[in-house]
């Protein structure tokens, strides 16, 4: 079934797909996920601390972002905003949208994790003279991150795959690179399976990293 020509195409395209993967997909994921975590921690903390107006802003943000498709969000920002004079380059635009989108999901993960930390520790912290922020930073957040680590890893792996949507806004990442090769060679089945396998490799590596990370974090978790 696999003739010599196809084999050659697959070998040749492997690097042509992997290189945009390393140069675009991975940096896009790392950047967007880092920003998403920052958004998530802030959004979760204003809810946890019950900051009145900010809490409502946070709920509104999560409501809108979780309630609309990621693809629609990409289109609104990339194709919609230029209509009112806001033009953002494809790559930063993708980082922005993925961060805002993932931030909303991770915020809920973080909020649940914060609420799972036994609250008496906050009182104990006050009683030894610590301030709210000191207790959050040194006692509550580290424990919340431990709880949130598996679901956050889940989100990260999900995001690696979601970055393929960035092809829709002309970001030359792995999926778009594949589409281009398909257009030239007319071998959609083999090539789309190939790019799928490369995504699978990325996810597998991340799963292994997750496992190592969980072991490291489990020191105080019996």
């Amino acid at each position: 079934m696999i003739d010599e020509r196809l084999l050659e195409i697959l070998v040749d395209s492997f690097w042509k797909i992997l290189i945009p993967g390393i140069k675009v997909t991975i940096p896009l994921t790392i950047l967007a996920f880092s920003f998403a975590l920052v958004i998530a921690v802030i959004t979760a903390m204003v809810q946890f601390a019950n900051v009145r107006i900010l809490k409502q802003v946070a709920r509104f943000y999560i409501w809108v972002i979780r309630g609309t498709p990621l693809l629609v969000q990409l289109y609104v920002i990339f194709y919609g905003l230029p209509g009112i004079g806001i033009v953002i380059d494809p790559f930063p635009c993708a980082v922005l949208v993925f961060a805002i989108n993932e931030g909303a999901y991770c915020a809920e993960t973080m909020r649940a994790a914060l609420e799972a930390v036994p609250s008496g520790q906050l009182e104990a912290g006050y009683c030894v003279g610590m301030s709210y922020l000191q207790i959050m930073r040194r006692i509550v957040l580290p424990q919340a991150f431990r709880t949130a680590f598996p679901p956050l890893s889940n989100s990260l792996i999900g995001m690696v795959k979601d970055t393929s949507l960035a092809a829709n806004i002309t970001v030359l990442e792995m999926f778009m690179a594949t589409q281009r090769i398909v257009a030239r060679t007319y071998e959609p089945l083999a090539l789309y399976i190939e790019v799928g396998l490369i995504y699978l490799i990325f996810s597998t590596v991340l799963t292994k990293v997750q496992r190592v990370g969980e072991k490291k974090l489990s020191a105080y978790n019996g």
């Binding site: 036994p118 008496g120 424990q143």
Partner: peptide, 12 residues
Amino acid sequence: AFVFQNYNLFLN
């Protein structure tokens, strides 16, 4: 200083 019924030690 305060000693709690449930200890409230910092678990981490």
